[in-house]
Simulated scan of single mutants.
Amino acid sequence: MTAEPDAFRRNRTAYRIAEPLITFHHAVVRPESAQLSRRRGAAQVWERSRATFLSKVVGPHFERLCREWVEWHAEPATFGGMPIQVAAGTVADPEARTRHELDVVVHGAVGQDQGILLSVGEAKWHKRMGVEHLARLRRVLRLLEARGIDTARARPACYSGAGFTSDLHAAEARGEVVLVDLERLYTES
């Protein structure tokens, strides 16, 4: 079990099972144990459980890998500063009566200044990301700015295992977003 503090709410901590195999057992195997013990219908069990597997096992594991990449491998130029604290976070949206969950929030150092918000990001393992994800991250940055957080240096970032739309690549070319795909995650900094 790991305790992960929220990037924006000091009094909020998320507790997660650290080992993906144990997460898989709790999310997929246990709920289907009666069916699996009969040794038939495995294909139907998998069909019913695939979405749960992607959202409860693979998704959180990919999010953690993205945070680790930022913390240990991303060059300072990627986010415009040296990453110091990388975490997940939640931001309330009172107008929409919801909250936004962020998978990768980067605070870091720029020159002598410490604790600067460098990036807010979203990670999707099995979904191709598009400009709608960038629009959501921009909304989050506006909400943070309204709360008095300096977002002047913050860069939106999208992390995807399935790729990005051409519109999102165009936004990256204009310097509006940082894109991290599997190739970058595993071969570049």
Rank of each mutant, 00 (worst) to 15 (best):
R10S: 11
T13I: 15
A14R: 15
Y15C: 11
Y15P: 00
A18E: 15
F24D: 06
F24R: 03
H25A: 12
H25E: 13
H26T: 14
H26W: 11
V29G: 03
R30I: 14
P31H: 07
E32A: 15
E32L: 13
S33D: 01
S33N: 05
R38C: 11
G41L: 13
A42S: 15
A42K: 07
Q44A: 15
Q44Y: 07
Q44M: 13
W46D: 06
A51R: 14
T52D: 10
F53R: 05
L54I: 08
V58K: 12
V58A: 14
V58T: 11
P60C: 12
P60G: 11
R64G: 07
E68W: 08
W69Y: 14
E71I: 04
H73V: 03
A74H: 04
A74S: 12
E75D: 15
T78M: 05
P83L: 02
Q85H: 10
G89E: 03
G89Q: 05
T90R: 09
A92G: 12
A92Y: 03
D93K: 06
A96Q: 13
R97V: 05
R99P: 00
H100M: 02
L102T: 01
L102C: 08
D103P: 08
V106N: 01
H107S: 05
G108F: 04
A109K: 07
V110H: 03
Q114K: 11
I116G: 00
L117S: 02
G121V: 02
A123K: 04
W125C: 07
H126C: 02
V131F: 00
L134A: 05
R139Q: 14
R142E: 09
L144K: 04
E145V: 02
